[in-house]
Design a protein around this nucleic acid. Sequence first.
DNA 1: GTCTATAGAACGATAGAC
DNA 2: GTCTATCGTTCTATAGAC
Lengths: 225, 225
Amino acid sequence: MTQERVQPPAGSRRLPEKRWAIARAASVVFGREGYTRASVDAIAAEAGVSKRTVYNHFGDKEKLFLSVALEMAGELTAAIAALADRHLGAAVDRRGAVDLERDLGAFATARARAMLSAGDRYALARAIRAEAAHVPPDVLRSWLDAGPFASQRDIAAHLRRMAGQGLLAVDDADLAATHFTLLTFSGAADRSFFGAVPISDAELADIVSTGVHAFLRLYGPSVGS
Amino acid sequence: MTQERVQPPAGSRRLPEKRWAIARAASVVFGREGYTRASVDAIAAEAGVSKRTVYNHFGDKEKLFLSVALEMAGELTAAIAALADRHLGAAVDRRGAVDLERDLGAFATARARAMLSAGDRYALARAIRAEAAHVPPDVLRSWLDAGPFASQRDIAAHLRRMAGQGLLAVDDADLAATHFTLLTFSGAADRSFFGAVPISDAELADIVSTGVHAFLRLYGPSVGS
DNA sequence: GTCTATAGAACGATAGAC
DNA sequence: GTCTATCGTTCTATAGAC
């Protein structure tokens, strides 16, 4: 039998599970409604706690939003890094039979689906983008560093390594990573309004396919820099 | 009957100038605050009319927002088309001394500045993007057709013509226009959160420069398709 | 016995609509 | 100008842990 309440007895101080439940509920409601439409009432209800508990844990609505947005940015970055490792890391071990176009396309497709298909995590990224003008600049900077910038660095590291193995002709890996994201992801993000509106598999496949093709024309191994 | 009266006397019903003032005020306030934060009170005050007048002209807050967003999308598209004509249309007449990199870069810079630098027009585009999940799909489609898609078609037409004159190696002009926008604009839009956060001239110049360079590697005249 | 988190009501402000 | 609904926030009383 599974032992519930392994650690703190009910009613004890600062239950971490309650905090986690609130954070998760906040990500759902903020992601679905946006910052201003989301009510603390709805978040408390979704979390199954009282409103006062929300305030005790997070101070106020804005702190709750920013705190959860930062946490979700880190989780999403980790998820994307895992996808990159799976799809691009493998290319290393398969030398001699490397299909760059397939591997890059598989990664681009998996990333786009992970971000744009109704996940809670990216819904919060959409919400903070929508609120950018009302978010303190230093918090925005922290969010960028934990989210989009971190992913770009991860991808750049993969491209740099692949270039070192002669699979790509890349001398500025950061720029190449930016171009990869622009050519294979930004168009899909734009068309789907960052995941707010569904995008069909066919449309995504077309964007990824043409994007990877262009990327390889820019950075493929046979292309002179 | 009631064929629309060409110009109603002052003080009569449905003064078009009042409607225009409301639309302009709405674009300012919606653009600055976003849809939910903007109050009808603030819009009426900005327009110098009473709240009741706003409701008489536009029905409710949502209709006001969508109506103004559509109008602004058209205006912005026209402004960008004018920039494209100025910077890319000239390339035709200067054959023999064509500097594609300069002309494309000048257009990209002008477009990015026009869209991302605190103009009322693009602020509304940012607002409707932020609200995409709460906008009726058919209205969203109309907005896309009047705004981003229309601009893409305009740019594609320029590229197609330039290709016909041997200035570019383009066989799919729509795809080339998409790539041009991705490589020279989307990065800047992303970094500035679609204009909500300022972007420095140096950063914009770098994005445009590397973007145009990559675009010409993809579609420059000496590149085989 | 004291401390603290919780639940739920209550308050003041503000917004949309007529 | 008014009305009504709703939101963010706070206050009060209760109940369990050291």
